[in-house]
Amino acid sequence: MITISVEDLWKSYKEKEVLKGISFSVNEGEIFSLLGPNGAGKTTTIKVLSCVSKPDRGKIEILGMKVPEECNKIRKIVGIVPQDFQGFSDLSVRENVEYFASIYEGDKSQVNGVIEELDLEEYKNTKFKKLSGGLKRRVAIACALVGNPKIVYLDEPTVGLDPKARRNVWDIMRKLKDRKLTVLLTTHYLDEAQKLSDRIAIIYSGKILRLSTPESLMKEFEKPTLEEAYLALLESIGEE
């Protein structure tokens, strides 16, 4: 079952074309990664799919609902973890999650559930501003999950984290997949994408260069890692 369908999506900001007719689909229960350098259009894609920005043109459907026409319905089934999630500094972990539960029409049992699921019980009364970067990212994911979404968008979720915290986030993503949630991940960490992704889309200068699996791209360029295959793809189009 296709949960996300994007056809010929275009988006510009201040007359600069950021997305130039990209198309892809995401299946139910898979981890699908948008890969590319900063400025490639990954975050803009997330913003359009999450109804933060309107597309200039193109056909976008989330579980059969159209963007932007049915965004009020779409927002109720989508959890978003933005790269720049801040949280409320002087509120506790629990208070932050409760706030997002009220937005997503979650209930008290869901708050308890996500706090436990993300191993935040020990920190539930700690103010957000006193948490480490890894714990803040876990709180961000908890806030996205508290409304029982069917789709979760993770925009560069491990940027700035130490190796242990990164792997904690990876474990969380695997658990989301085990729960049959659809995960759309943006990242420029190729090792992360190789370990987690069912399929990938490599986006560069607003265009998709490849839709593939990590294994297929590695095989295509005869490379042992996704990072090396990715670099070989860029070299093949004249980019270093």
Rank of each mutant, 00 (worst) to 15 (best):
G106A: 10
E235G: 12
L233G: 05
K150L: 14
F32V: 00
L190F: 15
K108D: 13
T182G: 01
G134M: 14
V26R: 00
I208G: 08
L131I: 12
E28R: 09
R57S: 14
E156K: 00
L63D: 13
L185P: 04
L234I: 01
K136N: 07
R179F: 02
N148G: 07
N148S: 15
V48S: 05
P163E: 10
E30R: 00
S33E: 03
N112Y: 08
Y104L: 14
Y204Q: 04
S23D: 09
I80Q: 11
T158R: 07
F85Q: 11
V81F: 01
V146M: 06
I77R: 00
E28Q: 15
Y204T: 08
Y104K: 06
E61F: 08
Y123N: 13
V26S: 03
P163T: 07
L118Q: 02
G87L: 12
D162P: 01
V169F: 08
T126S: 15
L211D: 04
Y204F: 15
S89I: 14
R75T: 11
V114A: 04
C71W: 12
N72S: 15
G64A: 11
K129Q: 13
V139C: 12
V26E: 09
L209Q: 09
R75I: 13
V6D: 05
L118K: 00
L63W: 04
L19Q: 12
E7H: 12
R137Y: 11
E121H: 09
K130L: 13
I80A: 07
L35M: 08
G113F: 15
E235T: 09
D198Y: 02
S212L: 01
E228T: 09
G79W: 02
L120A: 13
L131A: 10
L19D: 03
F88H: 11
E192G: 08
V146I: 14
I80K: 04
V48T: 07
L176G: 02
K73Y: 12
E15T: 06
I46M: 12
S92G: 07
L185T: 02
I200K: 05
K127I: 02
E121C: 13
A40M: 07
I62S: 12
I202L: 09
M173P: 07
G113A: 14
T45F: 07
D90E: 15
Q194D: 13
G39L: 06
S5E: 13
L118R: 03
S25N: 14
P224G: 07
E227N: 05
K207Q: 14
C71M: 15
N38D: 08
D84H: 09
T182L: 06
K129H: 11
T213Y: 01
I80H: 02
L34I: 14
L49A: 12
T3L: 06
P37T: 15
L49I: 12
S102N: 05
L233V: 12
P37G: 09
L131M: 13
